[in-house]
């Protein structure tokens, strides 16, 4: 399951898409808009994408994950448009027979998504200013 949506993400539905009778572990990553901008508080993040290519890149990630970790099943849903602080921007669910593969594949998917998939976010601050964000430092997630 790959989805780019303007609507709030239904995390339960994302999880459901990877549940399998053979899966003994499900790992979920949620990216959430946090409030702490550098000069003023973050009011919202606004996402845009190159849809056709973003969907294709997400499909590639999904199949690459399936060949790296045979048997895993994954679902990736990314929000577009304006997302207020506190709301989910991306949900990645991965199921596998055992937790090691589910954790590894999930971590790999979010890391790859952040460097490969043509999606961009603009930060709107509470003081009315806004700026385009580039890839945050390693290990930091927005």
């Amino acid at each position: 399951m790959i989805e780019l949506t303007e609507q709030p993400i239904d995390v339960g539905r994302v999880i459901q898409r990877v549940c399998r009778p053979t899966a003994g572990a499900v790992v979920v990553f949620l990216g959430v808009v946090r409030e702490d901008g550098q000069t003023a508080k973050t009011a919202a993040l606004e996402y845009e994408c190159y849809r056709q290519m973003a969907e294709a890149e997400l499909e590639k990630l999904q199949s690459e994950a399936a060949s790296r970790w045979p048997g895993v099943s994954c679902a990736i849903v990314h929000r577009l448009g304006r997302v207020p602080a506190g709301e989910t921007t991306v949900a990645i669910a991965v199921s596998a027979a055992h937790r090691d593969d589910a954790y590894s594949a999930n971590r790999w998917l979010i890391d790859q998504l952040k460097v490969r998939v043509p999606i961009w976010k603009q930060e709107h601050l509470t003081d009315g200013t806004s700026r385009w964000l580039s890839q945050p430092p390693e290990g930091e997630s927005r």
Binding site: Y50, K114, V117, I119, Q135
Partner: peptide, 28 residues
């Protein structure tokens, strides 16, 4: 990107292809 795939600098651009400029991405 050419037709939805990242392209290297030395790659030639076929006529009638869809070409896009991809600034550093920031999804997630």
């Amino acid at each position: 990107a050419i037709n939805g795939n990242y392209a290297r600098d030395e790659q030639t651009i076929p006529s009638d292809s869809e070409v896009a400029c991809i600034p550093p991405v920031s999804g997630g």
